[in-house]
Simulated assay, not measured.
Amino acid sequence: MWGRLFGLVLFGILAAAIAGGAWFYSWAVTEQPSPPSHSVLIESGGVNSVAQQLVRQGAVDSVPLFVLLARISGKDAELKAGSYSLKVPISPWMLLKKLGKGEVDLQMFSIIEGWNWRQLRQALNTHPYLKHDSANMSDEEILAALGISALSPEGLFFPESYRIDKGSSDFKLLARAHRLMQEKLDDAWASRKPDLPLKTPYEALILASIVEKETGKAADRPVIAGVFTNRLRQGMRLQTDPTVIYGVGEAFKGDITKAHLRTDTPYNTYTRAGLPPTPIAMVGEAALTAATQPAVTKAVYFVAKGDGSSAFSETLDQHNAAVRKYLRNN
């Protein structure tokens, strides 16, 4: 009798286990409704934290069951943070595989050649898919958080279109852009022409930023860099309007005046010799190459022709004639 009773109990346990397993399997492979936002944002954390975030956002309906599924499958240590698109219903099992593979919903953020730091910060702070961790921080605090030792963040981030995880920190993007700028600057400095009037890679970056802002036509970049290189060698002032405008800052309203040119600031290259203290813009690879490999030219002057290109002159008389010709036509 006892043997028969034990057998019945064992059968009952086995039947319950089979039924429970079948029910659990059915739960794992049955599609659940898409969350209201059609996406989920998973921050870093263990499997319990991930399951809680999924339930909170409406992607699954049970924390314990999702945790059990992750642990049974061995994927509990593979779950990756990020934003995941869930535009169609998905089963807990397929969602678990998606999180394990890190199939995040990628967005784009572009840093534009010639942007200044103020424009970059504005773009960061208004991008809908970035987490704005730097929004309320000063420039000094941002540099410290990134581990950058510099007077200013200006020019330190490479213009490029970056793929970003939806909901990722703007610091992550800035760190990537800074690393890429350092790589590009190091490569340009290593390939520089001999006897440049530049002492450091940072000075090359400053000159490149001026070339970036002065160039209307790509083919003119090396020659414009050659003009500024000649001026530096000869001890001439650079006398470039973009640095003056940068020094005026947000007060600049679109028209440069004689008052602007006469007002001394650290960036006024009409009143001060040499390079300004920092770059004035974000610099592309072509401008870096031009600054470190300038064209060989005797020109020390240039003026915009009105079509995006420039007219170059070797003497002040030639330059004055070009100014009369092209500025009168404009």
Rank of each mutant, 00 (worst) to 15 (best):
H38V: 00
V88R: 13
K101A: 14
K97Q: 14
Y326K: 09
L14C: 14
L261R: 12
F66W: 08
G274H: 10
E154Q: 13
A218M: 07
T263I: 09
P222V: 07
G20T: 08
L196A: 09
E203K: 11
F11K: 00
L14M: 14
R192E: 04
L106E: 08
A150M: 09
G274R: 06
S149D: 14
A70D: 03
V296S: 14
R231H: 10
I256H: 10
F11N: 00
L65K: 14
G100C: 08
D220M: 07
S134F: 03
A225N: 05
R179A: 15
G249K: 11
G216D: 05
L65D: 06
G247D: 05
E214I: 06
L275A: 03
I18V: 15
P197I: 09
P277I: 12
N230T: 09
S62I: 04
P159D: 06
G155N: 05
K258F: 12
Q57I: 04
Q53D: 07
D186S: 15
K172H: 08
I111H: 04
R192T: 03
D105K: 11
N329R: 15
L68Q: 08
Q293T: 15
V9P: 00
M282T: 06
W117N: 04
P153F: 04
S44F: 02
A144D: 12
A188K: 03
V227I: 11
D255K: 15
E103M: 05
L8F: 12
L10Y: 02
S39C: 04
D186G: 10
S26D: 13
K213V: 01
K258L: 14
P294I: 03
R233L: 12
L316N: 13
V47G: 01
